[in-house]
């Protein structure tokens, strides 16, 4: 699936929810379901420090594609991290660089990317794009 298609799929999933509590319940479920990062990669070098929560992000290149592994110490952040990984993991470098991530807005979680949250997510998205840029240049 393309980045666009996965985003549309997520938007559809979230459309089923009637209120915010169902949405957050789903994020909590997502955070539990995915083994996001190897313990060995949960290291300082992969840590993005937010004021509120921490995010770990590791990436490796597989041919033209980028594999992402990530984690967070906060559950809601981790749920959103799981969504970001679902959208960008296994995609081509150029696609990661080119595509806008509009789904976060569309599913009503934009507030988690605001400056005041400082939960590491904004830096995580930036870092994912940087990985793609670096891997492409190699």
């Amino acid at each position: 699936m393309t980045i666009l298609e996965i985003q549309e799929e997520i938007i559809e999933e979230f459309d089923m929810f009637d209120d915010w509590i169902q949405k957050y319940d789903y994020l909590i479920e997502l955070s539990k379901s995915v083994p996001l990062i190897d313990e060995a990669d949960r290291v300082e070098g992969n840590l993005i420090k937010g004021c509120q929560s921490k995010v770990w992000l590791h990436a490796k290149k597989e041919g033209e594609h980028v594999r992402f592994m990530a984690d967070s110490d906060a559950i809601i952040t981790k749920g959103i991290v799981a969504l970001l990984v679902r959208v960008l993991d296994g995609q081509k470098c150029q696609d990661i660089i080119d595509n806008e991530l509009h789904f976060i807005d569309a599913i009503g979680l934009r507030e988690h990317l605001s400056m005041t949250r400082s939960n590491g997510l904004v830096s995580m998205i930036k870092q994912m794009k940087i990985y793609a840029l670096v891997f492409q240049a190699k």
């Binding site: 957050y24 004021c51 509120q52 559950i75 952040t77 988690h112 939960n119």
Partner: peptide
């Protein structure tokens, strides 16, 4: 419970507290 998660839910309930360091 991570303070960030708690603060997020309380905000949804209209309650403003501070979370973090």
């Amino acid at each position: 419970v991570h303070p960030y998660d708690a603060g997020t839910i309380l905000d949804k309930l209209g309650i403003a507290i501070r979370t973090g360091h």
